[in-house]
Amino acid sequence: MIGATARGSVLSLVAVLAGILILPTALRAVNRLLLDDTVKPSYLPTVETPRPREPFDDEAAAALREAQPEFVVIGDSMAGTRIDPRHLSRTSGRSVAGLFVAGTPVAYWYLEFKNFVAQNHLTRVRGVIFFFRDDQLTVRRQVATPMFDRVARDEEPELDALLAADRLGTFSGVHRAARALYQFDRTRQWLEPRLNHAPAALAGSDGQPEALLSAINAEIFPLEKLRHYEAADLPQADAASLDFYSQLDGSVLPEIVRLAQRSNIRLAFIRVQRRPMADGPPPQSDELTRYLEELKAYLTERGAYYHDDWGDPATPLSTYADGDHIVPAAKVPYTERFLEKHARIFQ
């Protein structure tokens, strides 16, 4: 028999647990007051609540349709500092387009490949060349942000399923239910900018927080002001992410390969060399070496071309700017060597 005091204690525990679970539902009411309820569901409905999205970049898609390239090079700033598509077009005699957006993950490249190339009526396209670092093709920490808006269509079911499994893991159902119940993602949309702007309004002399924040990003924290290892953009891969086959299933790489096969597009993958040492290539762990061997086997078995720049004597430390970027003066020579070494891609 439970005494009155014990019963009171149990009730008080239940009250505290109820407070934790029930009070956050007030966010729904606040959101209703402050946000537009007519927004459409996200293209990644299992990882995002409805939010106003930036438009798909129709102009970029139309420009590619007009150019009708035979080859498209996709990657982030690493590819952007190495390959000059115009020069490559001139020297190879093939029409080449480049899609380089700094700081983008492989999921973004997948959407570029799908929506700008494979499903964009590019009738002449024969091949797509991806530039990547280390384990970037199977990195599972995919970040869905408004950055994806410009390359995503209204529905992206394949990516949605992958991200849901990846980001939320075994408990993705719990995350989804909590997001639907509390709508905290929607609250973040209006709360976070306000929270960041309030100190900026106080710190800036002209009371324009947006301008101050842009200036801070552009002039205080630009890439060239970061320490070398930070400027590399991506940290070195840890051992867990270098287990190729355990990472593969949750990554977009199989989807890229499937899409290429369906669209009859040849794939090429070029692993760029990270910032070398003064006296040779960058160190490489046994795990990474094994990972790359498995990646190469996986891709070549599926008909893709694979090349690893590691140990390339033509890109010593002196050709590097910050991090893994190479200096502008080395771009054209790299492009020419690229064509020389990989002429068969363009045949």
Binding site: S12, V16, G19, L23, P24, L27
Partner: peptide, 16 residues
């Protein structure tokens, strides 16, 4: 007060 405080902290955790 404890229930309210916990609910407020949970709300802040979810949103911030």
């Amino acid at each position: 007060a404890q229930a309210g405080l916990c609910g407020a902290m949970m709300t802040a955790i979810l949103t911030l």
